[in-house]
Amino acid sequence: MRTLSSLEQFNDLVESEKVVFMFTADWCPDCRVIEPVLPEIEESFNEYTFVSVDRDEFIDLCIEKNIYGIPSFLVYNGGEEAGRFVSKDRKTQQEIENFLSNLPK
Rank of each mutant, 00 (worst) to 15 (best):
M1K: 07
M1Y: 06
T3N: 15
L4M: 03
S5Y: 02
S6N: 01
L7D: 00
E8P: 01
Q9W: 00
Q9L: 02
F10Q: 00
N11I: 00
N11T: 08
N11V: 01
N11S: 14
D12W: 00
D12L: 01
D12Y: 05
L13T: 13
V14L: 08
V14I: 15
V14D: 01
E15N: 15
S16I: 01
E17I: 01
E17P: 03
V20I: 11
V20W: 08
V20K: 10
M22L: 12
M22F: 06
T24Y: 09
D26V: 03
D26N: 14
W27P: 07
C28F: 08
C28V: 03
D30H: 11
C31P: 13
R32T: 14
V33C: 00
V33H: 09
V33A: 10
I34G: 08
E35P: 02
P36W: 07
P36T: 12
V37Y: 10
V37R: 12
V37G: 02
L38A: 01
L38T: 10
P39Q: 09
E40T: 15
E40R: 14
I41S: 10
E42H: 13
E42N: 12
S44M: 05
S44P: 00
F45S: 07
F45A: 09
F45Q: 06
N46C: 09
E47R: 13
T49A: 10
T49K: 15
V51Y: 07
V51N: 08
S52K: 15
V53R: 11
D54S: 10
R55M: 04
E57F: 00
E57D: 12
E57R: 13
F58L: 00
I59R: 13
L61F: 01
L61W: 02
C62I: 00
I63M: 12
I63Y: 08
E64N: 14
E64W: 00
E64Q: 15
E64I: 04
K65L: 15
K65E: 13
N66C: 06
I67S: 08
Y68C: 03
G69A: 11
P71K: 06
L74P: 05
L74S: 08
L74Q: 09
V75T: 14
V75G: 07
Y76I: 02
N77L: 02
N77D: 14
N77W: 00
G78N: 13
G78F: 06
E80I: 07
E80Y: 05
E81D: 05
E81R: 12
E81A: 11
E81L: 08
G83T: 12
G83W: 06
R84I: 12
F85M: 13
F85H: 11
F85S: 07
V86I: 15
S87C: 06
K88F: 04
D89W: 02
R90V: 12
R90E: 12
K91W: 03
K91H: 09
Q94Y: 09
E95F: 04
I96Q: 04
E97F: 02
E97A: 04
E97I: 03
N98F: 08
N98D: 15
N98V: 07
N98Q: 13
F99S: 06
F99D: 06
F99R: 02
S101Y: 00
S101A: 14
N102V: 04
L103F: 04
L103P: 04
P104T: 10
P104D: 09
P104Q: 10
K105G: 10
K105N: 11
